[in-house]
Measured scan of single mutants.
Amino acid sequence: MNLTVNGKPSTVDGAESLNVTELLSALKVAQAEYVTVELNGEVLEREAFDATTVKDGDAVEFLY
């Protein structure tokens, strides 16, 4: 899956889609429990991480 992460191209191997929690784990995001996630310009509530799917071509920003 090809994404733009914090403005840079990134690839997650072996996945066509992941939820936000899985993406944080796959990318080994440090202190993931404290990060705010913006997906395609929309800031996500932490409670929505498990239910929100990240797909090929999406833009993700991790805000600390």
Rank of each mutant, 00 (worst) to 15 (best):
D56Y: 05
A51T: 15
M1K: 02
Y34V: 11
V5Q: 01
T11K: 14
A48I: 08
K55E: 06
A32M: 11
E45L: 13
M1D: 01
G14H: 10
V35Q: 04
V54M: 04
S25Y: 09
G14C: 09
T36A: 07
S10Y: 15
G7E: 01
V5L: 07
V12P: 03
G57W: 03
T36Q: 10
F49Y: 11
T52C: 05
T11R: 15
A59T: 14
T21L: 09
E38L: 15
N6M: 05
V12Q: 03
T11N: 08
T53F: 15
E45F: 11
R46L: 06
P9W: 10
L39H: 04
V60S: 02
K28Q: 12
E38K: 15
K8R: 12
E16C: 12
D13M: 14
L63T: 14
V29M: 06
S10L: 15
V20G: 00
Y34W: 13
Q31I: 11
A15Q: 09
D56E: 10
L3H: 04
T11Y: 15
D58E: 02
A30E: 13
E33L: 09
P9T: 07
K55M: 10
N19P: 04
G14N: 10
G7M: 03
A32V: 11
A48Y: 12
L27I: 05
D56H: 07
M1W: 05
A59C: 13
V35R: 00
V43K: 11
E47H: 11
E38R: 15
E38Y: 15
K55S: 08
A26R: 07
K8S: 08
S25A: 14
E16F: 14
V29Y: 06
N19G: 03
N19W: 04
A15V: 14
E33T: 08
T53M: 14
L44T: 06
L23K: 00
F62T: 04
Q31M: 14
T36K: 09
L44I: 15
V54T: 02
K28A: 10
G7H: 05
A59P: 02
M1L: 12
V43S: 07
T21F: 07
E16V: 14
K8H: 11
S25K: 14
L23F: 04
Y34F: 13
E22Y: 04
Y34E: 08
F49L: 05
T4D: 04
L39F: 05
V5F: 03
K55C: 08
E16P: 11
A59L: 11
E38G: 07
A32R: 08
V35T: 05
E47Q: 08
L44A: 02
V12T: 04
T36L: 11
A15T: 11
V12K: 01
N40A: 00
T11G: 06
D58T: 02
L63E: 10
V43I: 13
E45C: 12
D50A: 09
T11W: 15
T21P: 03
A51R: 14
A32W: 14
E61F: 12
A15H: 14
D50F: 06
S17L: 09
V29H: 04
A59R: 14
Y34A: 09
A59I: 15
L44S: 01
A48D: 11
P9H: 09
L24M: 10
A30M: 11
N6E: 02
E16L: 14
V35P: 04
G14Q: 07
N19I: 05
T36N: 07
A26K: 09
D50M: 06
L3S: 01
A15Y: 15
A26Y: 15
V29F: 07
T21D: 05
G41D: 03
V35N: 03
V60C: 05
M1A: 03
N2M: 12
V43Q: 09
V20S: 03
V37N: 01
L39D: 00
E22P: 00
L24I: 10
V43R: 12
N40E: 02
E42A: 10
Q31S: 12
V37Y: 01
E33C: 12
N2D: 06
L27C: 07
V54G: 01
G41T: 02
F49W: 15
L39N: 00
L39V: 06
D50R: 05
A51C: 13
T53Q: 13
A32Q: 11
P9Y: 09
T53R: 11
N6Q: 05
E33N: 08
A51E: 12
L18F: 08
N2A: 10
K55I: 08
N2H: 13
M1C: 06
T4A: 05
G7Q: 04
E47V: 07
D58S: 04
G7P: 01
A15P: 10
T36M: 11
G14K: 08
V20D: 01
V20M: 10
L27S: 00
N40P: 00
A15M: 11
L24W: 02
A59W: 13
V54W: 01
A26I: 14
G14F: 13
Q31N: 15
E45A: 12
D13R: 13
G7W: 03
Y64C: 11
L44W: 03
E33Y: 08
L18E: 01
G57S: 03
V12C: 07
E61A: 11
E61H: 11
L39I: 09
A26C: 11
N6G: 05
Q31K: 11
G41Q: 03
E16A: 14
S17E: 10
D13A: 14
F62K: 02
E42Q: 13
M1V: 08
V20L: 07
R46D: 04
E47L: 07
D56Q: 07
S10E: 14
L23Y: 00
G14I: 09
N6A: 05
